[in-house]
Design a protein around this nucleic acid. Structure first.
Lengths: 115, 115
DNA sequence: TTGACATATCAAAAAAAATTGATATATAAG
DNA sequence: CTTATATATCAATTTTTTTTGATATGTCAA
Protein backbone atom coordinates (compact mmCIF):
# COMPACT_ATOMS: atom_id res chain seq x y z
CA UNK A 1 0.00 0.00 0.00
CA UNK A 2 1.17 3.50 -0.74
CA UNK A 3 0.83 6.42 1.63
CA UNK A 4 -0.72 8.64 -1.03
CA UNK A 5 -3.71 10.76 0.03
CA UNK A 6 -7.07 9.86 -1.43
CA UNK A 7 -8.54 12.29 -3.91
CA UNK A 8 -12.25 11.55 -4.09
CA UNK A 9 -15.32 13.33 -5.36
CA UNK A 10 -16.89 15.38 -3.97
CA UNK A 11 -13.63 17.23 -3.39
CA UNK A 12 -12.55 18.50 -0.03
CA UNK A 13 -11.09 21.96 0.36
CA UNK A 14 -7.55 20.65 0.65
CA UNK A 15 -7.87 18.50 -2.44
CA UNK A 16 -9.21 21.46 -4.40
CA UNK A 17 -6.14 23.47 -3.57
CA UNK A 18 -3.78 20.66 -4.43
CA UNK A 19 -5.44 19.85 -7.74
CA UNK A 20 -5.49 23.51 -8.68
CA UNK A 21 -1.72 23.63 -8.09
CA UNK A 22 -1.03 20.57 -10.21
CA UNK A 23 -3.17 21.83 -13.00
CA UNK A 24 -1.62 25.24 -12.91
CA UNK A 25 1.77 23.57 -13.16
CA UNK A 26 0.60 21.60 -16.17
CA UNK A 27 -1.09 24.52 -17.88
CA UNK A 28 1.98 25.74 -19.72
CA UNK A 29 3.37 24.24 -22.91
CA UNK A 30 6.99 24.56 -21.89
CA UNK A 31 6.28 22.72 -18.67
CA UNK A 32 4.37 20.03 -20.52
CA UNK A 33 7.37 19.57 -22.78
CA UNK A 34 9.47 19.05 -19.69
CA UNK A 35 7.01 16.47 -18.39
CA UNK A 36 7.04 14.81 -21.77
CA UNK A 37 10.82 14.48 -21.67
CA UNK A 38 10.85 13.23 -18.14
CA UNK A 39 8.23 10.63 -18.94
CA UNK A 40 11.10 8.77 -20.59
CA UNK A 41 13.17 9.01 -17.41
CA UNK A 42 15.26 11.30 -15.26
CA UNK A 43 17.15 14.11 -17.01
CA UNK A 44 19.68 16.67 -15.88
CA UNK A 45 18.96 20.35 -16.31
CA UNK A 46 21.69 20.74 -18.91
CA UNK A 47 20.06 18.15 -21.17
CA UNK A 48 16.71 19.87 -20.83
CA UNK A 49 18.27 23.22 -21.69
CA UNK A 50 19.54 21.80 -24.97
CA UNK A 51 16.29 20.03 -25.70
CA UNK A 52 14.00 22.96 -25.05
CA UNK A 53 16.20 25.71 -26.49
CA UNK A 54 15.35 28.12 -23.75
CA UNK A 55 17.20 30.51 -21.49
CA UNK A 56 18.67 29.08 -18.31
CA UNK A 57 16.73 31.16 -15.82
CA UNK A 58 13.49 30.56 -17.65
CA UNK A 59 13.96 26.81 -17.53
CA UNK A 60 14.91 27.04 -13.89
CA UNK A 61 11.72 28.95 -13.21
CA UNK A 62 9.55 26.32 -14.88
CA UNK A 63 11.32 23.46 -13.14
CA UNK A 64 10.76 25.16 -9.83
CA UNK A 65 7.09 25.65 -10.64
CA UNK A 66 6.70 21.94 -11.35
CA UNK A 67 8.70 20.97 -8.30
CA UNK A 68 6.73 23.27 -6.00
CA UNK A 69 3.53 21.70 -7.27
CA UNK A 70 4.94 18.32 -6.26
CA UNK A 71 5.03 16.99 -9.78
CA UNK A 72 8.81 16.75 -10.05
CA UNK A 73 11.55 15.61 -7.71
CA UNK A 74 15.15 16.71 -7.95
CA UNK A 75 18.45 15.25 -6.91
CA UNK A 76 21.90 16.81 -7.01
CA UNK A 77 24.86 14.81 -8.18
CA UNK A 78 28.03 16.84 -8.11
CA UNK A 79 27.58 19.89 -10.27
CA UNK A 80 24.47 18.54 -11.94
CA UNK A 81 20.87 18.46 -10.83
CA UNK A 82 18.58 15.73 -12.09
CA UNK A 83 14.82 16.07 -12.31
CA UNK A 84 12.26 13.30 -12.54
CA UNK A 85 8.52 12.75 -12.32
CA UNK A 86 7.17 12.24 -8.82
CA UNK A 87 5.11 9.04 -9.08
CA UNK A 88 3.00 9.93 -6.05
CA UNK A 89 1.69 13.12 -7.62
CA UNK A 90 1.01 11.34 -10.88
CA UNK A 91 -0.87 8.67 -8.96
CA UNK A 92 -3.02 11.26 -7.21
CA UNK A 93 -3.81 13.08 -10.42
CA UNK A 94 -4.77 9.79 -11.94
CA UNK A 95 -7.19 9.21 -9.09
CA UNK A 96 -8.83 12.57 -9.58
CA UNK A 97 -9.24 12.28 -13.33
CA UNK A 98 -10.19 8.62 -13.04
CA UNK A 99 -12.91 9.59 -10.56
CA UNK A 100 -14.27 12.15 -12.98
CA UNK A 101 -14.30 9.57 -15.71
CA UNK A 102 -16.33 7.19 -13.57
CA UNK A 103 -18.80 9.98 -12.85
CA UNK A 104 -19.17 10.66 -16.56
CA UNK A 105 -19.78 7.01 -17.27
CA UNK A 106 -22.46 6.81 -14.59
CA UNK A 107 -24.07 10.01 -15.82
CA UNK A 108 -24.28 8.56 -19.31
CA UNK A 109 -26.18 5.62 -17.92
CA UNK A 110 -28.48 7.92 -16.01
CA UNK A 111 -27.23 6.92 -12.57
CA UNK A 112 -26.21 9.69 -10.24
CA UNK A 113 -22.96 9.61 -8.37
CA UNK A 114 -20.85 11.27 -5.77
CA UNK A 115 -23.24 12.37 -3.07
CA UNK B 1 -15.67 2.98 -30.36
CA UNK B 2 -15.52 6.69 -29.62
CA UNK B 3 -14.14 9.30 -31.99
CA UNK B 4 -11.89 10.77 -29.32
CA UNK B 5 -8.35 11.71 -30.37
CA UNK B 6 -5.50 9.68 -28.95
CA UNK B 7 -3.30 11.44 -26.46
CA UNK B 8 -0.06 9.49 -26.29
CA UNK B 9 3.42 10.08 -25.00
CA UNK B 10 5.62 11.50 -26.36
CA UNK B 11 3.20 14.34 -26.95
CA UNK B 12 2.62 15.91 -30.31
CA UNK B 13 2.44 19.68 -30.68
CA UNK B 14 -1.35 19.65 -30.97
CA UNK B 15 -1.76 17.49 -27.88
CA UNK B 16 0.49 19.82 -25.92
CA UNK B 17 -1.73 22.75 -26.73
CA UNK B 18 -4.90 20.90 -25.87
CA UNK B 19 -3.62 19.55 -22.58
CA UNK B 20 -2.34 23.00 -21.62
CA UNK B 21 -5.85 24.37 -22.22
CA UNK B 22 -7.54 21.71 -20.11
CA UNK B 23 -5.08 22.16 -17.32
CA UNK B 24 -5.43 25.88 -17.38
CA UNK B 25 -9.18 25.46 -17.14
CA UNK B 26 -8.72 23.20 -14.13
CA UNK B 27 -6.14 25.37 -12.43
CA UNK B 28 -8.59 27.54 -10.53
CA UNK B 29 -10.42 26.58 -7.34
CA UNK B 30 -13.70 28.13 -8.34
CA UNK B 31 -13.66 26.19 -11.59
CA UNK B 32 -12.80 22.99 -9.76
CA UNK B 33 -15.78 23.56 -7.49
CA UNK B 34 -17.94 23.84 -10.57
CA UNK B 35 -16.51 20.57 -11.92
CA UNK B 36 -17.10 18.99 -8.55
CA UNK B 37 -20.76 19.99 -8.62
CA UNK B 38 -21.23 18.86 -12.17
CA UNK B 39 -19.67 15.51 -11.41
CA UNK B 40 -23.00 14.74 -9.75
CA UNK B 41 -24.86 15.71 -12.90
CA UNK B 42 -26.06 18.61 -15.02
CA UNK B 43 -26.85 21.87 -13.22
CA UNK B 44 -28.34 25.16 -14.29
CA UNK B 45 -26.39 28.37 -13.81
CA UNK B 46 -28.81 29.64 -11.18
CA UNK B 47 -28.16 26.63 -8.95
CA UNK B 48 -24.42 27.07 -9.33
CA UNK B 49 -24.73 30.75 -8.42
CA UNK B 50 -26.39 29.82 -5.14
CA UNK B 51 -23.97 27.02 -4.45
CA UNK B 52 -20.82 28.97 -5.11
CA UNK B 53 -21.92 32.29 -3.65
CA UNK B 54 -20.28 34.29 -6.36
CA UNK B 55 -21.22 37.19 -8.57
CA UNK B 56 -23.09 36.39 -11.75
CA UNK B 57 -20.58 37.72 -14.24
CA UNK B 58 -17.73 36.03 -12.44
CA UNK B 59 -19.47 32.67 -12.60
CA UNK B 60 -20.30 33.25 -16.22
CA UNK B 61 -16.63 33.96 -16.92
CA UNK B 62 -15.51 30.73 -15.30
CA UNK B 63 -18.16 28.67 -17.05
CA UNK B 64 -17.05 30.12 -20.34
CA UNK B 65 -13.43 29.31 -19.56
CA UNK B 66 -14.36 25.68 -18.90
CA UNK B 67 -16.58 25.50 -21.95
CA UNK B 68 -13.94 27.01 -24.23
CA UNK B 69 -11.49 24.41 -23.01
CA UNK B 70 -13.97 21.74 -24.06
CA UNK B 71 -14.51 20.48 -20.54
CA UNK B 72 -18.14 21.56 -20.24
CA UNK B 73 -21.12 21.48 -22.56
CA UNK B 74 -24.13 23.76 -22.26
CA UNK B 75 -27.74 23.55 -23.29
CA UNK B 76 -30.43 26.19 -23.12
CA UNK B 77 -33.90 25.34 -21.92
CA UNK B 78 -36.17 28.33 -21.90
CA UNK B 79 -34.66 31.00 -19.75
CA UNK B 80 -32.20 28.64 -18.14
CA UNK B 81 -28.87 27.32 -19.29
CA UNK B 82 -27.67 23.95 -18.08
CA UNK B 83 -24.02 22.96 -17.92
CA UNK B 84 -22.56 19.47 -17.75
CA UNK B 85 -19.24 17.69 -18.01
CA UNK B 86 -18.15 16.77 -21.51
CA UNK B 87 -17.30 13.05 -21.29
CA UNK B 88 -15.01 13.18 -24.32
CA UNK B 89 -12.69 15.72 -22.74
CA UNK B 90 -12.65 13.79 -19.49
CA UNK B 91 -11.80 10.65 -21.43
CA UNK B 92 -8.90 12.36 -23.16
CA UNK B 93 -7.54 13.76 -19.94
CA UNK B 94 -7.75 10.34 -18.45
CA UNK B 95 -5.65 8.98 -21.31
CA UNK B 96 -2.98 11.58 -20.78
CA UNK B 97 -2.70 11.13 -17.04
CA UNK B 98 -3.04 7.37 -17.37
CA UNK B 99 -0.15 7.39 -19.84
CA UNK B 100 2.00 9.30 -17.38
CA UNK B 101 1.15 6.83 -14.68
CA UNK B 102 2.23 3.93 -16.84
CA UNK B 103 5.52 5.71 -17.53
CA UNK B 104 6.10 6.18 -13.82
CA UNK B 105 5.41 2.53 -13.14
CA UNK B 106 7.84 1.46 -15.83
CA UNK B 107 10.46 3.88 -14.56
CA UNK B 108 10.15 2.41 -11.09
CA UNK B 109 10.91 -1.00 -12.49
CA UNK B 110 13.87 0.38 -14.39
CA UNK B 111 12.35 -0.12 -17.82
CA UNK B 112 12.38 2.84 -20.14
CA UNK B 113 9.32 3.91 -22.02
CA UNK B 114 7.96 6.24 -24.60
CA UNK B 115 10.63 6.40 -27.28
C1' DT C 1 -45.80 45.21 -25.99
C1' DT C 2 -43.93 45.77 -21.59
C1' DG C 3 -41.61 44.21 -17.74
C1' DA C 4 -39.08 40.80 -15.26
C1' DC C 5 -35.74 37.40 -15.01
C1' DA C 6 -31.55 34.43 -16.47
C1' DT C 7 -27.43 34.68 -18.53
C1' DA C 8 -23.68 36.65 -21.48
C1' DT C 9 -20.56 40.16 -22.86
C1' DC C 10 -17.73 44.22 -22.42
C1' DA C 11 -14.35 47.54 -20.69
C1' DA C 12 -11.55 49.13 -17.01
C1' DA C 13 -8.95 48.04 -12.97
C1' DA C 14 -6.54 44.78 -10.14
C1' DA C 15 -3.92 40.75 -9.45
C1' DA C 16 -1.04 37.02 -10.76
C1' DA C 17 2.31 34.83 -13.68
C1' DA C 18 6.09 34.80 -17.05
C1' DT C 19 10.27 36.68 -19.11
C1' DT C 20 14.71 38.81 -18.92
C1' DG C 21 19.21 40.00 -17.51
C1' DA C 22 22.11 40.32 -13.56
C1' DT C 23 23.93 38.23 -9.66
C1' DA C 24 24.52 34.49 -6.20
C1' DT C 25 25.69 29.75 -4.76
C1' DA C 26 27.66 25.30 -5.01
C1' DT C 27 30.83 22.06 -6.74
C1' DA C 28 34.73 20.56 -9.11
C1' DA C 29 39.23 21.10 -11.53
C1' DG C 30 43.63 23.16 -12.00
C1' DC D 1 43.17 29.57 -3.75
C1' DT D 2 41.42 30.70 -8.22
C1' DT D 3 38.73 29.83 -11.96
C1' DA D 4 35.15 27.56 -14.58
C1' DT D 5 30.79 25.32 -14.86
C1' DA D 6 25.93 24.16 -13.49
C1' DT D 7 22.08 25.83 -11.51
C1' DA D 8 19.23 28.99 -8.56
C1' DT D 9 17.51 33.36 -7.18
C1' DC D 10 16.32 38.19 -7.55
C1' DA D 11 14.34 42.56 -9.25
C1' DA D 12 12.28 45.00 -12.96
C1' DT D 13 9.31 44.68 -16.73
C1' DT D 14 5.87 42.67 -19.66
C1' DT D 15 2.09 39.71 -20.44
C1' DT D 16 -1.88 37.20 -19.09
C1' DT D 17 -5.69 36.31 -16.21
C1' DT D 18 -9.21 37.58 -13.02
C1' DT D 19 -12.50 40.59 -10.94
C1' DT D 20 -16.01 44.06 -11.01
C1' DG D 21 -19.77 46.81 -12.42
C1' DA D 22 -22.40 48.19 -16.32
C1' DT D 23 -24.87 46.96 -20.18
C1' DA D 24 -26.74 43.75 -23.69
C1' DT D 25 -29.42 39.65 -25.18
C1' DG D 26 -32.81 36.24 -25.03
C1' DT D 27 -37.04 34.27 -23.14
C1' DC D 28 -41.21 34.14 -20.77
C1' DA D 29 -45.48 36.09 -18.56
C1' DA D 30 -48.86 39.59 -17.99
Amino acid sequence: MSSVAKIALPLREASLTRIARWCHALSDETRLQIIDRLSAGEQCVCDLTDLLETGQSRLSFHLKTLKDAGILKDRREGRWVYYSLNPEAVEEMEQFVGGLKVCCQRLRKGTRCCD
